[in-house]
Amino acid sequence: MLFARWDHRITPYLFIAPFFVLFLVFGLYPLLRTAWMSLHRWDLLDGPVAFTGAENYTALLADPHFYNALVNTLSIFVVATVPQLLAALGIAALLDRPSRGSTALRAVVLLPNVVPVVAVALVFTQLLGRDQGLVNWALSWFGARPVDWQAHAWSAHLGVAIMVIWRWTGYNALLYLAAMQTVPRQLREAAELDGASRARVFWTVTLPWIRPTVLFTAVVSTIGGLQLFAEPRLFGGTSTGGNDRQFQTLVMYLYENGFDRFDAGYAAAVSWVLFALCAILAFGNAALLRRLVRRG
């Protein structure tokens, strides 16, 4: 009896304890220590050198390489996300029919998301090669001169965005599809009885219904997009992202400062600015989501 009472009181905490121990040690503590570090001149290997207050942040806000990385990150994010989510909606609409809902079909659509991001980056780097790449070969049919994809900001951003689009469109399409399949039959049929075309049913019934999922994917894509690292890093082979940093993202800049230059304090400041950006964009999206859901 005593054991039972003790058991029902204590055991739930024991069940959740492993998560919280790991979160405190490997999640929360590093995050807070990042803030502390960012207020110091701090060498990655030797530790703190001097307390410098906000110096890292003032330096960062005057650092052209930081703004360059910020603009690149946002540019790639927009080029990757907007077409991706639109295409995902279209694919979900195509699959949202009984005859097309087969598991095999959906598995193929999801397949790119299963492929390691490193492998994705490597095959697209080959496809976009200047001399041997298939894309330039195809462009040459139309008389285009070979594009040196890494050499220009626009083409490098496009190349990296294509990798992201390939890997994530199918995943988002299946999330939309799952949401579309919860649209009540009567709602759709009522609209069809009123003589609405299929396109109209999609815009007036399906899309409003799946709006929460659309906004969820927008939030996830935002957080993921701000953290982009593997694709551009492998596209150029270094964390500078091209000779003129034309495709260096914020996390690559973080990596360059922390692990190429051992300037841990500065890297920590980049981390916190990135964190603030994620928080602002995610909270902004979440507020939007709440408002739209209430309205919908």
Binding site: G27, P30, L31, R33, A264, A267, C278
Partner: peptide, 11 residues
Amino acid sequence: VPAQLGVVPLF
């Protein structure tokens, strides 16, 4: 919370 942000102290 993006896990990469604590990477320097985690290291």
